[in-house]
Nucleic acid binder design. Structure first.
Lengths: 362, 362
DNA sequence: TAGCCATGCAGAAACGTGCCTCCAAAGGTG
DNA sequence: CACCTTTGGAGGCACGTTTCTGCATGGCTA
């Protein structure tokens, strides 16, 4: 009873425990816990008193103890596919940065924090952090990490529809097929007769869905496919592939590039061959970079809306964690946005046609 | 003794505890712990046996319990200054992405994971996660978060030298003054007679140090300062400021822009005024974006080497956490790299002079 | 044979919370 | 007065580890 608040055995002087608060306030541990967490039946006077004493002692509850007791850590894993030993490639820089930014904000708003984790199966690092759930970006087929997490009973939400029969709790993705078809139609409307594609060699769903959509569109309108594929993780390969595409005898008069740097790569290649954009060559690429607004000429881009995706993914995950029956379906499709600029407008070279952006709707 | 491994009271069927492993292996809890952690005096046979049983049961130690017991969580906070309610602005996208990427890898290599946290003083989220230490990016003067962390006895390492008398454990930064002076000399060598600066209105150390270095250089060489300052967090303001700078009666014949988008903004402004780059206007900006390698013309950039900074910051922090007497000084200066491209070379228009890049030394 | 040390392992005390159970006192009702 | 209900709060267990202490056993030396 009369234990002074400084007599705790091994505790550092800077850290006051709940016991110290209880002793200093002259109440029991239970009362302190209830007062600070807003539970129990306590008169407001006691509640205020305890809170004031806790503040005075600079009391911070131990996250570890709370996690151990409640089973909830308030931590969400953010897993990115690793190439080599580095998380995410430069190809997805802007996308990932925006997506992570939005995910961080959304998680924070609901009291959660994000932990960046690699998609390796080194469980020594995975099991060293108590997660309530995980966001997986673009999981590969039969991802061992996802399987392990699901086996542990943790909810998993993926950015990008899961390949194969990956048992995720929910997923969010764009309608990549519709996006590609929309772009091809847009280019055809602008006068393109032969549209080329700059695509990747890897087997992820984004590349796969986009490429097959292109091939089907070609078949439908009766155009021979004209495309070059390259390993998207290699920066130089993109420039080379762009060059090859424009060097072909059946050179396209419009090109859509699936990856962020394709815009500048294609622009550079066009200059080398003396092709004017948009007069001789129409250009669109998939990118989140605002730099394409001020290139010469400005380049039309497709935005995958990473901010909306990041927000949606986190909301879905936290809903699953907290057992909230989500109003939303477990499969959510986020619309893409085509930001039309000069590079894809042959007829009326207005400087910009993109609708005015609202800050929160990117 | 004879407690079956399935009879644990409230535990979920998917999670096996250390008790279950002990029971299944026919040994004590102590032996299991020692065997799995490589401690104690155990014959290899016992060690192997325990490990095999643990694997068979799919045992994963509880991170929360371990953290509570040992006081170490293996988690490092990564704090970014927030503008509004979003972490980091688009201005620093590439920088932050690279820096965070390197920091994540470095932490992972030493068995730590990174938690993204906002620099708000909402301690409800801060105290909900057990951190071993924190990386603070560009802390503001008298940052309340840093003070609080230090008060709790946690090591704090900052990216960017701390303003004022912020009591960080260590910091890593570039020599911004030397970088600016180097660029100005470089531009002067290329024939610039009047060098302008595109700078920011905020009071962070990067902006401050760079601007005063510019002013001192001007004084030294006897040139009137020609600069425009704008709020760096506003995307449109950058384009406007670039335009204003080139519209002045004392228009500079060379410009250095402190922020990432300045390159394209200045290029666009130059086109509007019919200025050829580099013939009429030399251009350099501070950026990590590889897109500047393929603009027309390619733009000389200053790289702050975010990957090296991210790595260094994490190493310093983990050294402090683990009590390793760091061989490195607690103040570490990372050299910048000027990637010289066409936009700053008036005399010999070689396409590129940048040294061949090694992948790991960006 | 007695003493001693190294080996191999078990018991149990923490770590700091949250929460379930239970009790004392006060107030109301017949 | 006897009984019930409500209020306010205390006791103590459990979460799953790590680790300190200690107890046997067996081989070795004197």
């Amino acid at each position: 009873m009369s234990r002074a608040e400084t007599s705790r055995r091994g505790s550092r002087p800077g850290r006051a425990g709940i016991r110290d608060v209880a002793a200093a306030a002259g109440v029991s541990i239970t009362t302190v816990s209830d007062a600070l967490n807003g539970k129990g039946r306590l008169p407001d006077a006691t509640r205020r008193h305890v809170r004031e004493v806790a503040d005075r002692l600079g009391y911070r509850p131990s996250a570890a103890a709370r996690t151990l007791r409640t089973g909830k850590s308030g931590l969400i894993g953010l897993t990115v596919t690793t190439y080599g030993d580095e998380p995410f490639t430069f190809t997805e820089f802007a996308y990932f940065a925006e997506m992570a930014r939005a995910a961080t904000s959304a998680a924070l708003a609901r009291g959660y924090a994000l932990v960046i984790l690699p998609a390796t199966s080194r469980h020594d690092v995975w099991s060293n952090v108590a997660l309530d759930g995980t966001v997986v970006i673009d999981p590969s087929d039969q991802d061992p990490v996802v399987s392990e997490l699901v086996r542990q009973g943790l909810p998993v939400v993926s950015d990008g529809r899961p390949a194969g029969s990956l048992p995720v709790t929910a997923w969010v993705d764009n309608d990549h097929e519709a996006a590609v078809l929309g772009i091809l139609d847009h280019l055809a409307d602008a006068g393109a007769r032969r549209i080329g594609l700059l695509t990747g060699t890897s087997t992820d769903t984004y590349t796969h869905l986009s490429t097959t959509a292109y091939l089907r569109w070609c078949e439908r309108v009766g155009q021979d496919p004209v495309y070059e594929a390259y390993p998207a993780h290699d920066p130089c390969a993109g420039a080379v592939a762009a060059d090859r595409l424009l060097a072909r005898p059946d050179r396209p008069d419009a090109v859509y590039g699936l990856f962020d740097p394709n815009g500048t790569d294609l622009l550079a290649a066009a200059r080398r061959y003396g092709l004017r954009v948009p007069d001789d060559l129409l250009l669109v690429c998939c990118s989140e970079s605002t730099m394409y607004a001020s290139t010469e000429p400005p380049i039309t881009t497709l935005s995958l809306k990473p901010r909306r995706i990041g927000t949606a993914v986190v909301q879905l995950l936290i809903d699953a964690i907290e057992g909230v029956e989500s109003e939303q379906p477990v499969e959510q499709v986020i619309p893409t946005e085509l930001i039309v600029r000069t590079s894809s407008q042959r007829r009326s070279p207005r400087t910009t046609v993109s609708p005015p952006r609202t800050p929160d709707d990117r």
